[in-house]
Amino acid sequence: MKNVALSDLPPETVKRLLSEGRLYLHLGPYVTALSTKDAGVREFLTDMYQDCSILVGEEALVDFSLEVRAPNLVRRYIRRQIVADPGFYFPAVPLPVKLGPLCLEMGMNLCVALQSFRQAIFHAGVVSDQKGGIVIAARSGGGKSTLTAALMEEGFRLLSDEFAILCAETSFLLAYPRPVSLKNQSIDVVRVFAGADQVSDRLTGTPKGDIAYRRLRKSDLETANLPAKAKLILFPRFQAEAAPAVEKMDIADAAMQLIASSPNYQVIGEPAFHALMQMLDGVEAYEITYGNTEDSLMLVKDLWEAVDG
């Protein structure tokens, strides 16, 4: 097996590998065998994941297998629909075929959330610099992805927009950089500070409103093998017109919220407990409230400056 960038593979090779279910995407700690015959999904993949590493060879050892396909033969041709099939049953409404990219991304999330058995997964974005990592916990409408994308522009490296992947042995956070999922108003916000060319086309009419993806950066992929030690945990709260505010949180409260956000904490069991407790020993946690991205950046920068390197 050898590694090549996706963009180095001829389009017909990508098409063939995808149709055979042998496009082995190697991202961070996971290898995913991708399979699809959908041209829209293929186009999205070759664009957004162009710098990603692909394992090339007859067969690879993979962590996940994901097929993005029509739910049945009829729906392959009539009022075309598409579903993500991660190899196990998971209730999901088929989407119109134009939302194939969303299916792909949701399917990849599903694989990590429910099929990772070596790392504890928490629902959070993670960025880092040489000091360590910032975990941005997910709250509905909290602005996790917007803040994550904004911090990328401030020189932080992206580990993951969706998952804090905690190595059970080391308690370090592992990188799994993927395109950052942006919803509704945050799409335009990120277009402004990251540049329009860094954001994908907008998918409209999804179950979550409009969705677009902030493009993966080559630098984040090149450093994806570097773990990060968590130093700061943020629980963002976006409120329109709200004055910026910071409140220190009890670490025990942070632990409770993180555990509640984990899809596999109970499956991993004691190693997850140890890893989480060890990670939390060295961090501070804050709830930040803000009304716009500038305020959130200001708050995070202030908190980060106070963190010991």
Binding site: F88, Y89, F90, A113, L114, Q115, F117, I259, A260, S261, S262, P263, N264, Y265, Q266, V267
Partner: peptide
């Protein structure tokens, strides 16, 4: 109560 029941069954 970690959100574990469903994932376990999915597993």
């Amino acid at each position: 109560k970690a959100s574990a029941t469903e994932p376990v069954h999915s597993a």
